[in-house]
Design a protein around this nucleic acid. Structure first.
Lengths: 228, 228
DNA sequence: GAGCTTTTCTTCACTCATTGCAAATTTACA
DNA sequence: TGTAAATTTGCAATGAGTGAAGAAAAGCTC
């Protein structure tokens, strides 16, 4: 007799959702710092104390689907298509990620714009978001290395992920900061990807002769202080 | 009559330094979360309230020289050497940055190892560090664009900085996480830089044919929801 | 050195996030 | 319907961070 989730579960889900919506709406209206957990709880009709059995902190409400998103990505890497290039796979992952962000059927996805604005403008949230992104990239690199263990070692995988993600992230942000209209984002993303894939040399900055690259442990860290 | 900084200034400097040292030592001994601001203040012999007129938050003590470091970097970009390539300049900046981190004459620099360990292991600090890094990169990209306004536009500059920094950051962290000895870091950094400079294609992952790159606004964002 | 001005430090009182605990409620189930 | 398990709640504390007002210290002027 699979009755599906019982009342208990359904209620919990409903409360969770109510909290997320209430929180984001309040944050939008009065600002993140200005909204207290007590207010959020009241808006969802539960006690302040109970809020913390749904979310470990006020920040966490904003990143309610963080882990799920990451897991999906990692899963995607593990089941890469046969013959797919690392870069191709990564681009496909990026696409899925964007799609999930904006095109969800889930009612909660309507909150994406609000959430994005919050994460970009509230320092603590921005920091938290960057940490999430960083962890994701690290896990992504590991997964990539596992998926292509023959062709690419961990450090290379990390460098590849870091370069691609870094280029896109920074270019996008720069473009947004500068006040470019959102429509222009795609063009920006495309260019950033191209630069990362083709290499920095491609930017008409003139080829960086190998001599420029630091070799072994050079002028830096003369005292070996990097150790503990 | 330039008497140099008066007693007032000197005392303030001394207190600030005492706070930084006390804080980092306490964090090291008992852990970041476990150390209260009251304890730090007591160790530096000032009232708890006064702590907050030296640092806006407990986190801030750990990043006491954050802005100074960033400013130095930006300044370096503004006064680039004639004929220097963007990549060359960036590498030189990276070097200076490392040098500043480890080879300072300043007594406080001895705290670098402790600080590094803290930032890597305490979630809130890691997040804060990533935010600082992100802001730095953004400013770096702007400065780069200003310095090479003829050759490179803002988005390109951002992509270049993001790719290079991203590759190094992630590769280094992956290497550290995996448990590699610190001595191996330089080799890792070198490889990451190389990958970023030569492009992801260089990783023996097979060339990514241009077709892979998303062009214009493609399958993504069908509803144009990226807007507001 | 006395007296006055400007800074800095302290104390006090408060708001808010977050946590441990025990009692009160609610849901699941026999 | 009654009991066990899961949730929720109220209450008390701890600790970060802030505003306001007065005390203490430092800088200056005569």
């Amino acid at each position: 007799m699979v009755d599906g989730p019982g009342l208990r579960e359904r209620k919990k889900l409903r409360t969770r959702r109510a909290l997320i919506e209430a929180a984001l709406h309040l944050f939008e209206e009065k600002g993140y710092e200005e909204t207290t957990v007590a207010e959020i709880a009241a808006a969802a009709d539960i006690s302040t104390r109970t809020f913390f059995s749904y979310f470990a902190s006020k920040e966490d409400v904003v990143f309610f689907d963080g882990q799920a998103r990451v897991d999906e990505i990692i899963d995607m890497i593990a089941h890469r298509r046969a013959g797919e290039t690392v870069v191709e796979l990564l681009l496909r992952v990026g696409e899925l990620s964007m799609a999930r962000t904006f095109a969800g059927t889930d009612h909660l996805m309507e909150l994406t714009p609000v959430r994005t604005r919050l994460i970009m403008s509230v320092p603590v949230l921005q920091a938290r978001g960057l940490r999430l992104l960083f962890d994701t990239q690290l896990r992504l690199a590991e997964a990539l290395h596992r998926a292509y263990s023959e062709e690419i070692d961990l450090v290379e995988a990390a460098a590849v992920v870091g370069a691609l993600a870094g280029a896109v992230k920074l270019a996008t942000m720069a473009c947004l900061n500068r006040g470019d209209p959102p429509e222009q984002i795609w063009e920006t993303v495309r260019r950033a990807i191209e630069i990362a894939v083709r290499g920095l040399q491609s930017v008409g900055v003139g080829p960086a002769d190998p001599g420029v690259l630091p070799s072994g442990r050079g002028r830096l860290d003369p005292a070996g202080e990097l150790s503990r």
